[in-house]
Nucleic acid binder design. Structure first.
Lengths: 164, 164
DNA sequence: TTAATTTAAATCGTGCACAATTTAATCGTG
DNA sequence: CACGATTAAATTGTGCACGATTTAAATTAA
């Protein structure tokens, strides 16, 4: 009897505890589906989706530090270090310690890494058409998602003093 | 044409190729941030986020097959098989082959698995308050994201005839 | 100027995601 | 019945994500 549970004392919360009521699941499943959409396009470039994000940052800001990628992409060193090493092995970038501060690692595009931008230029339009959304639809959703992410991020940052 | 880039032949696509213009990155980073928000709440229950999703399905539909989880969660066997085995090892469910069709695996909650629903009942409200969004905001976003995911999904399904 | 602290990055271990392959049960046709 | 085809699930291998720990360089304070 999944329907009508009148005056069931344990029910008021249960209602909210279904898969299709979860915003988080919509977000999660949409994100995975989007990554799948990118996969064949990016594999033509020899990139995975997170690698593509790193390349996007580098095409905008070459010579950035790993901590810069961390800030920009909201990923941590445990994710970025091996990822960047794989891109280095592919010859798209080089990693070099900063001479001023040997703790820092500077990431620089190689000529191949820079050239790849031309090949990547058509990815956004191909994705937009495949996603069946108008650009303005995508843009509106993007704005809302960034706002959500930023709120979550500041909440997460303000709540990491549990270790004190 | 927000920037006016006059007659630069290689430029028309470049503009779109920046991180902050990518809806996909907003989606991806928001999804990761949301998972981080859930993490401490779910670890009180001994669950990871994908495990929580499986439990949500089971609380709605106990005795479902692994293929049912696959359909419902848009995940494949390579993800689900080990995940469900971990939940079994925790004693939250049991896996048993269907007597009618030995290929199928039926997943059933144990009493512990069913009891966990009470403890999980407060998760949605705690997440909503931590995310700093009104319920209607979240619900609107949820609807848009589901629509996007469904469009992506049908697109992906209609394009897997590449192997033919 | 050492000693304590902080910081940037790397390392390690666990758990997803998913493509590709494999295994085993069922079905369909002759 | 047989036997090729289909199907459900498992397995394998690669690449994220991320918490926790470690390493080593730089900063600060004593």
């Amino acid at each position: 009897m999944p329907e009508h549970q009148p005056f069931n004392q344990s029910a008021p919360g249960d209602d909210l505890l279904t898969l299709d009521r979860q915003m988080c699941f919509a977000l999660y499943s949409a994100s995975l589906a989007m990554t799948k959409l990118y996969k064949p396009l990016l594999s033509e470039l020899g990139l995975t989706y997170p690698q593509y994000l790193v390349m996007l940052v580098l095409w905008e800001t070459d010579g950035i530090r790993v901590s810069g990628l961390k800030e920009r992409l909201f990923l941590d060193y445990g994710t970025l270090t091996p990822l960047v090493k794989r891109l280095e092995k592919q010859g798209l970038l080089v990693r070099q310690r900063s001479p001023e501060d040997e703790r820092q690692v500077i990431v620089r595009l190689t000529p191949q890494g820079r050239n790849l931008q031309q090949a990547a230029a058509r990815v956004p339009e191909r994705v937009a058409s495949a996603s069946g959304c108008s650009l303005s639809e995508l843009d509106g959703l993007k704005t809302e998602l960034c706002a959500l992410r930023n709120r979550l991020h500041s909440h997460l940052e303000s709540h990491l003093e549990e270790s004190a």
